[in-house]
Design a protein around this nucleic acid. Structure first.
Lengths: 201, 201
DNA sequence: CGTTTTCTATCACACGTGTGATATATCCAT
DNA sequence: ATGGATATATCACACGTGTGATAGAAAACG
């Protein structure tokens, strides 16, 4: 143990400061100085743990993606096979599971909004492009796993997966940016309605 | 006629430069100097037609919204009553109509991506907040008009409207940010599949 | 003509940015 | 205790930003 402070923990703390800042004031307000202030550190310390702004941004975006995939993986083992459940129970289970992606409470809302800003920024930022692809295709892969579990004919499965992924991202966007209209409750109800409308296995 | 150049036309040209710039290099790269360069004008001229950056941004975002609503209004009179059409024809007509919102070709793609950046920016920018609400609720209102035309029970209509709006926004996001996976064709097919899955009038 | 408004063009300023370079502390091991 | 790595803290610089102020050019009007 060569150091007196846990470097990984420090990096995580700094990334947290980035996320808080971005959630509160928007991604463009994130600068080395502002995250230093937000995390209670000196700018020199921040620069000691990250090579520069690019590193910082990548790490922060990476940590959001890891966080949500970790939440999903944590839930996965508790899932029961669809065959054992009534249609209503299956819909409830899947809704709860996929709701992990939606901005239904404060922390997930913060994650979703910041990730949204990262995704749009990545369009013209080569430094983030691969992470954006990973995130976007991650929700598609998740949707695909679900349509596979429903044993749809492959052609329909691909279509339904894109449809579900689109709905998830769209609900996320609308609930994150206009929660007064697209409230968390509405969001959840829409998702559930969509899931029950899918063909049964 | 007090001027030798059409002021409104100039403002529109400058707004066009903003959109080109934002589409190519991202919203954060839009500055008074960069749009002056992009539009071939001097920075002083730009400032003569706009009070400042805030005015410029508002006008540019406004012009995107107006453009897409204008496209929709232009198509509306050509729509035929659903009762006169076969289900397949009705689906085609609605798909074509709503596809006006999707980034299926280059110009609409540019509009969609830039509008997306404006929407996320508006979350923390009071100067753009009302326009973002207008845009987000506009697509919801559009979806609502459609579910009303299907004569659904009001409760289901509200749900289906949110579902359609979410799908539209999600497809827009995914197709704008990852068109290699969510291609325009896929986008269109998903939308059509969703429309045919709706209850018939 | 001259005057007045519209348009174009610069200059200057304060501010925030990322980063290179460097100094000072703080801890760990030899 | 000496040395060396780790961590914290400053300074300085070049750069881009929005905007206030102002000066010229160009057209319109009386």
């Amino acid at each position: 143990m060569p150091k007196q402070v846990d470097g990984d923990q420090r990096r995580a703390d700094i990334a947290d400061a980035v996320l808080r800042l971005a959630a509160r004031d928007g991604l463009p307000s994130v600068s080395l100085r502002s995250v230093a202030a937000e995390s209670g550190l000196n700018i020199g310390s921040v620069r000691h743990y990250f090579d520069g702004q690019r590193d910082l941004m990548r790490f922060a975006m990476r940590s959001i993606i890891d966080r949500v995939t970790a939440r999903l993986d944590r839930r996965r083992p508790a899932l029961r096979p669809l065959a054992e459940l009534t249609p209503a129970q299956a819909a409830d289970q899947l809704t709860d599971f996929l709701a992990e992606l939606l901005p239904l409470d404060a922390p997930r809302r913060a994650e979703a909004t910041v990730l949204l800003e990262f995704l749009t920024a990545a369009r013209v930022d080569p430094n983030l492009a691969d992470l954006a692809r990973e995130a976007l295709r991650g929700t598609l892969a998740l949707a695909h796993r679900l349509t596979d579990a429903l044993a749809l004919p492959p052609a329909a499965a691909a279509l339904e997966a894109e449809r579900l992924a689109g709905l998830l991202d769209g609900l996320t966007l609308r609930c994150a940016l206009d929660p007064e209209t697209t409230s968390p409750q509405v969001c959840r109800e829409v998702l559930r309605a969509h899931l029950v409308s899918l063909p049964r296995p």
